[in-house]
Write a protein that binds this DNA or RNA. Structure first.
Lengths: 153, 153
DNA sequence: TTCTGTTGATCAGTATACTGATTATCAGTA
DNA sequence: TACTGATAATCAGTATACTGATCAACAGAA
């Protein structure tokens, strides 16, 4: 463990930061200002209309306190609506607006490109193997984070 | 790209967050409160006594504005000293204190354990392959971040 | 030597992430 | 039904990261 290049934590941090920068650049080129976190939340709501914030957090492995601010900004941009649930007065249900749907459609190619660019140093076979190992590693530490992924009930 | 599990950006974010949580837990067990970022900065200064902040940022791929706060906290904890450079009055030179050296020594086993735990889902061969691909991927996107790694002059 | 462009450090502002607490509400039990 | 424990959302506070700006100082060219 003599060099940073041998420390997985350090390398993962750097790849994550590059991924965010790449995402920003690609999305900006499409004319939008949206973060990876906001994009993931928005697509998750699209797939689960009327979802509440806590369930959303579990679906995309976000911390419950983080989701509040993320949703705040998506609502402020006009991409999401947040209304009190009719069945549980504690909960707020989320829905993608018309504008949100349009934005997602226009952003999608940029997002696909960003994922490609992020792994541009790896060939096809390496990318697949990297993704396999990455998913396997993530699955084994899911419960060690405050924001574990929770599959649908 | 139908599932989050197929998006490298999403998986990398989750592994990074798990890595931070694991690091915190292990270091806390050793009796210290230090972040991965602070640890990396401290070890880099130990290896390069008298380094200035900008060079330090390049060595560990941190943003130059981030390093200010990180060094602030390390100085406040008594692990680093920050003095004006004698050769360049813009620069601040950094040195690890006696207390910083002691802390690094006591934290090291926890850090090694954290790196192991982070990859606990992978066997020995998979870990090595994962690290190889991770380093390769990071190297190919180094220049796309605001905080690229810079090798020694 | 003066001018110009660059660099080191910092600041203001924004967006994740987390810890730990609080409040309102729910669901099941005595 | 009253109580108890759990849950949804939020808040205050801290630490990364980034954008873009500022200011002092440096270094090389005219």
């Amino acid at each position: 463990m003599s060099s940073y290049d041998e420390m997985p934590g350090h390398l993962v941090r750097r790849l994550q930061q590059a991924a965010v920068a790449i995402f920003h650049a690609e999305v900006a080129r499409a004319g939008y200002d949206m973060t990876p976190v906001q994009y993931a939340a928005l697509t998750a709501v699209r797939r689960n209309p009327g979802i509440d914030q806590a369930t959303l957090a579990g679906l995309i492995a976000y911390d419950r306190t983080t989701i509040t601010g993320v949703v705040d900004r998506l609502v402020q941009k006009g991409f999401l609506t947040r209304h009190p649930s009719k069945t549980d007065r504690r909960a707020r249900t989320l829905c993608v607006t018309e504008r949100g749907h349009i934005a997602l459609g226009e952003i999608q190619p940029a997002v696909e490109q960003a994922q490609q660019t992020m792994l541009r140093g790896l060939d096809k076979g390496e990318s697949r193997e990297f993704m396999r190992l990455l998913a396997k590693a993530v699955g084994a530490v899911n419960d060690l984070s405050r924001a574990p992924l929770k599959t649908a009930r």
